[in-house]
Design a protein around this nucleic acid. Structure first.
Length: 888
RNA sequence: GGGCGCAUAGCUCAGCUGGGAGAGCACCUGCCUUACAAGCAGGGGGUCAUAGGUUCGAGUCCUAUAGCGUCCACCA
């Protein structure tokens, strides 16, 4: 029984099996091989709350292509996987789950809550890494890390303490972004700014002296309870006299001063701004300049506090409504204007962020940013594509201090301890024995945890053992390339860069490969709320992981978004199918009817035919180009080239060219043909493997000489300058030209491909020789029984259909009915086309500037082309005359 | 208000350092030819956003314009 691939390509039959085989045999494992060069990629850790989505699929495909290519190229590769504890996201999930069970987070307390959170992590945290396996991720699962595992936590604490000791982490009372829904502070980049429809309310604040007072405009009336002044621009003539006087906040009867400050824009609103230092960033600054108090009127949960008097306890928006109504009834509302106002929203839950005054921990960024700017500026770290370095620079150069504390429980707790006796704060790895100030022995730890991004910022080195100088850390760090979407350059990439400089005194990675977003077929962002997300696992189920991967990677150019289209997945699947069938054909021809393997020639010194050399040259060329594309991170281009050489050259031509030999009688030559078929196929599989790992590995296992090997561990092909085979390739390419010409004639004359024909080819000199050398191919592939190659017109029968090709003319005598009308039409078209070409070439050559300034070889090239076209044109005109006479 | 990106065939997009416009899908014609109809052989279809400029030569480089997208920014 012959052993061969299944008749139809069905990736489900083998993808899981292949992956298991790799994993069990340790194919993904990284080793510290002193004789090899390390190549390291750390996987952006997906959130444990997450499911695998198209973004991951793209991100991981890129990384896997790179790591597989480098592995095959002889590097000691490490692709390190892991996951992120996702502080806020996870806490929200766990809180909701508990709520469903009727449990309130605050009732059970911190310890108990964390038990639930860890249980949740144990249950769902592995889900996404399991899904990665279906994609084919060849990462070293033995080194899988988690941002809250023991080692990473140690790194986080150490890094925090180091920065604190350097004075780069401080605790401060500042105006921060507060999410009332999450109940936590957010960093600046966690706030999304949007313009929204809103109102300006104009209110009159009467003068304390009984005067007219002043009219202010505000979009946030509920903050009036925190007003401490009204500001006007010093140059504003309208308010010149009132500056320094007091006005009364209506209904509250609180007196506040009118102050002059550069901040108000006289053009905007009434030109007078109420100042609420505790609930607005700008007002806060004004308050500082004028030494104003900073009372808060809003609680952390978004309700009003006692400052709001009778509105206390109301939600801030409810209060707004009620307060405006009361003010209106009391006659203080002057007018309302509709316009768009900028609003900040929490990037997690979408709640409107409230600026609040609060004690929080910050990282002082300027000293960390400076070297992080230099390391990109001097090219130690390069962005691909380059333009993203501008985005990075701009952000780094204007960076503000990073708020790192969060009022949550799930995360790394801040290692700061407060003495119960005197309140002294100690920042240390463990709780201190006694207070350095008063000797007290009772402490409580800071309640806050760190921003999730604080731990992922350490990812390149915390995962390798830092702060311990482990062998892994020494060998694999710095990492080589970081692959990620442009949406997290600020959140993550930028921060990894400065942490590595601080902790390791070196670059975190050499390249940042930035990819775009996978959008839906209409170009919209895939999102849960739109319900337009496409589950990669569904696609894999339907088309296979190889098809998905190939579609994702060939559809992109670095940094640009892509659209997800099923038609393209299908096209990729069809390509896999094509390769599958071609391989099945090859394997079939390697064995006799009993399934016994037939002998193969040793290719060293074998008598290669022209088509063998041509094919070998084609693969060789592809090897060169694909490798170069990979080197430049042009992964999509590389994939396209492998696709083209497999389909357009190996399948379309080489297999067809070689068939007659396989079915022929020359046993020695059969051995050669088989050997080349296999050898070339193997090289093609190697080139394709990073892109389509499953199908290539599956086919590999069926080929002779692969026993006990894995394609994943095979060497990457190397370009061989000695294998360009130009002469032999010319024969094949000329034969192809002739074959196409004959097929064309056949099609025009509507003669079936099965009909036997003869051909007369007019050519001279070298061209005649080349055609002569390739005539067997023509006979086989164009179904021609006899070919006559001649220079003379006399040998051409009177009734023929012809096609003019480079340096030759192909004639097919047709005894059967011939459509001379069609022939006339075809030749007329041909003539027109050639005339155009002649005109173009003549035009260029008659341009003196071109002839004198363009490189000599370019000029010569044009001259040759012109001669050739003129020659072809003359022949076409001759044929036309003959056909025309036939028609009379 | 700044930064960046996009515009190429009906659709989705490639075209890297300037040298005769490409792919997939869709469409039309003919083929179930012994690996493959998830296929084979052909075909139609583009003033490469507009206007200038550099150059012997521009889809490619420069400038400007309006359009779309996106990020950043404390405008009540």
């Amino acid at each position: 029984m012959a052993k061969n691939l299944e008749k139809t390509y069905d990736p489900k039959q083998f993808e899981k099996r292949i992956y298991k085989g790799w994993e069990e045999k340790g194919c993904f494992k990284a080793y510290r091989d002193p004789d090899k060069t390390p190549y390291t990629i750390v996987m952006p850790p997906p959130n444990i709350t997450g499911q695998l989505h198209m973004g991951h699929a793209l991100d991981h495909t890129i990384q896997d292509v790179l790591i597989r290519w480098k592995r095959m190229s002889g590097f000691s590769t490490l692709w390190l996987p892991g996951s992120d504890h996702a502080s806020i996201a996870t806490e929200v999930k766990v809180v909701n789950k508990l709520k469903d069970e009727g449990i309130d987070k605050d009732d059970i307390g911190r310890e108990e809550f964390l038990k639930h959170a860890w249980a949740w992590k144990d249950e769902y945290g592995g889900r996404i890494t399991q899904q990665c396996r279906e994609l084919g991720d060849s990462c070293d699962w033995d080194r899988e890390r988690f941002t809250m595992d023991e080692q990473c936590s140690k790194a986080v604490k150490t890094f925090f303490i180091n920065l604190y000791k350097k004075g780069l982490i401080y605790k401060g009372n500042r105006l921060i972004n507060w999410c009332p829904d999450c109940g936590s502070v957010l960093s600046d980049i966690e706030v999304e700014h949007e313009d929204e429809q809103g109102s300006y309310w104009y209110f009159r604040y009467p003068g304390a002296d009984g005067g007219e007072g002043i009219e202010i405009a505000t979009s946030r009336p509920e903050t009036i309870f925190g007003d401490e002044a009204v500001a006007v621009h010093p140059s504003d003539e309208r308010y010149k006299d009132i500056v320094g006087k007091k006005v009364i906040i209506p209904l509250l009867n609180k007196e506040i001063p009118v102050i002059a400050d550069e901040y108000p824009d006289p053009e905007k609103g009434s030109g007078a701004v109420k100042i609420t230092p505790a609930h607005d960033m700008n007002d806060f600054e004004v308050g500082l300049r004028h030494d104003l108090p900073t009372p808060s009127c809003i609680n952390p949960d978004g309700t009003m506090n006692e400052l709001a008097g009778k509105y206390a306890g109301m939600d801030r928006y409810e209060c707004r409504k009620a307060f405006v109504k009361d003010l209106e009834e009391a006659g203080y509302l002057v007018k309302v204007e509709q316009l768009t106002i900028p609003t900040g929203r929490c990037y997690r839950c979408g709640t409107a962020v409230e600026p609040m005054l609060s004690d929080q921990w910050f990282v002082k960024m300027k000293p960390l940013a400076d070297p992080a700017i230099d390391i990109v500026k001097d090219g130690t770290i390069q962005f691909v594509p380059e333009r993203f370095s501008k985005t990075y620079m701009h952000w780094m150069e204007n960076i503000r201090d990073w708020c790192i504390s969060r009022q949550l429980w799930w995360g790394h707790r801040i290692p700061a301890y407060y003495c119960e006796e005197c309140g002294e704060m100690v920042v240390d790895f463990d709780q201190p024995e006694s207070c350095p100030k008063c000797g007290g022995t009772h402490f409580h730890q800071d309640e806050d945890v760190l921003d999730t991004w604080f731990s992922s910022a350490l990812w390149t080195f915390s995962t390798l053992g830092w702060p311990d100088m482990t062998e892994d850390l020494k060998y694999f760090h710095p990492t080589d390339v970081l692959v990620t979407g442009y949406d997290i350059i600020f959140f993550w990439v930028a921060r990894m860069i400065f942490t590595a400089i601080d902790a390791m005194d070196e670059e975190a990675f050499k390249y940042v490969y930035v990819h775009g977003l996978v959008r839906d077929a209409q170009g919209r962002k895939m999102s849960k709320s739109l319900g337009n997300g496409i589950d990669p696992l569904d696609v894999i189920d339907q088309y296979g992981a190889d098809a998905l991967r190939f579609m994702l990677i060939t559809g992109i150019s670095p940094g640009n978004d892509m659209r997800f289209q099923y038609e393209r997945v299908e096209a990729a699947r069809n390509f896999a199918n094509k390769l599958w069938n071609a391989s099945r054909f090859v394997i079939m021809n390697l064995q006799d009817e009993n399934g016994e393997m037939l002998p193969l020639a040793d290719l060293e010194g074998a008598a290669l035919k022209d088509e063998d050399k041509w094919m070998i040259a084609r693969v060789n060329e592809a090897t060169k180009n694909v490798t170069r594309d990979m080197d430049r991170f042009e992964l999509g281009m590389g994939g396209q080239k492998v696709h083209d050489v497999i389909w357009n050259e190996y399948c379309d031509w080489y297999i067809e060219l070689v068939k007659s030999r396989l079915y022929g009688e020359d046993e020695e030559d059969k051995k050669v043909a088989r050997a080349v078929l296999v050898s070339v196929l193997k090289d093609l599989l190697r080139l394709l493997h990073p892109y389509m790992p499953f199908i290539t590995e599956e086919i590999w296992q069926f080929l002779p000489g692969t026993e006990g090997t894995f394609l994943i561990a095979e060497p990457w092909p190397v370009y061989d300058e000695g294998k360009t085979y130009e002469e032999e390739s010319a024969v094949i390419e000329k034969a192809m030209e002739v074959i196409k010409a004959i097929r064309n004639i056949r099609a025009e004359a509507e003669a079936s491909p099965g009909r036997k024909l003869t051909a007369v080819i007019q050519a001279e000199g070298a061209a005649a020789e080349t055609i002569e050398a390739g005539q067997t191919y023509v006979k086989n592939l164009a179904n021609i029984t006899d070919i006559k190659i001649t220079a003379s017109d006399d040998d051409v029968p009177a009734e023929v259909m012809s096609a003019v090709i480079t340096e030759a003319e192909v004639h097919v005598p047709l005894d059967e009915l011939v459509d001379f009308e069609a022939e006339l039409e075809r030749l007329t078209k041909e003539k027109k086309k050639l005339e155009g070409e002649v005109k173009r070439a003549k035009g260029m050559l008659s341009n003196e500037k071109f002839v004198s300034k363009a490189p000599a070889e370019k000029v010569q090239e044009e001259k040759d082309k012109l001669a050739n076209y003129e020659d072809m044109l003359a022949k076409v005109i001759d044929r036309l005359a003959i056909v025309e006479s036939k028609l009379k």
